[in-house]
């Protein structure tokens, strides 16, 4: 089964900070990314630039609305994702629990539609 792990982080984690805690946090992500890749479960995935770099578009009737920033104004924002291939939801949750943002923000785990093999 393929699952998308969506990493939601509080705004403070997107800010470029240099204090020791922030460096340790970034090192935690590097360790996590290294471990999940070496375990051979990753299909694909990316980290994203901070939410403020986003642009949101809506079409309402004939009008296009373009807005700076992310879609939702919430405390936690999407910071990146992996699509992983694991036997079941429990295994996906195990990888979700290992993400550094699991203890500061949250991780949403969703099954991915996969095309039937022809």
């Amino acid at each position: 089964m393929q699952y998308m792990l969506m990493f939601y982080q509080p705004q403070s984690e997107f800010d470029q900070r240099d204090e020791a805690a922030a460096q340790a946090y970034r090192a935690g992500w590097m360790d996590y990314v290294g471990a999940i890749r070496q375990a051979g479960v990753v299909q694909n995935g990316h980290g994203l630039h901070p939410p403020l770099t986003g642009t949101t578009l809506r079409v309402r009737g004939d009008k296009r609305q373009v807005q700076d920033g992310p879609f939702a104004d919430s405390k936690e924002q999407l910071g990146g994702y992996f699509v992983i291939d694991v036997p079941d939801l429990d295994a996906a949750l195990e990888w979700a629990a290992r993400a550094p943002c699991a203890s500061t923000g949250g991780v949403e785990v969703r099954p991915v539609f996969t095309a039937p093999t022809m």
Binding site: M30, D31, G34, A35, R98, P100
Partner: peptide
């Protein structure tokens, strides 16, 4: 150590490994 930290779900254990 990096691999072990990446596989840990505990912030306290990750900090200790680092």
């Amino acid at each position: 150590y990096a691999r072990a930290a990446g596989l840990s779900a505990s912030p306290a254990v990750r900090a200790w490994l680092a």
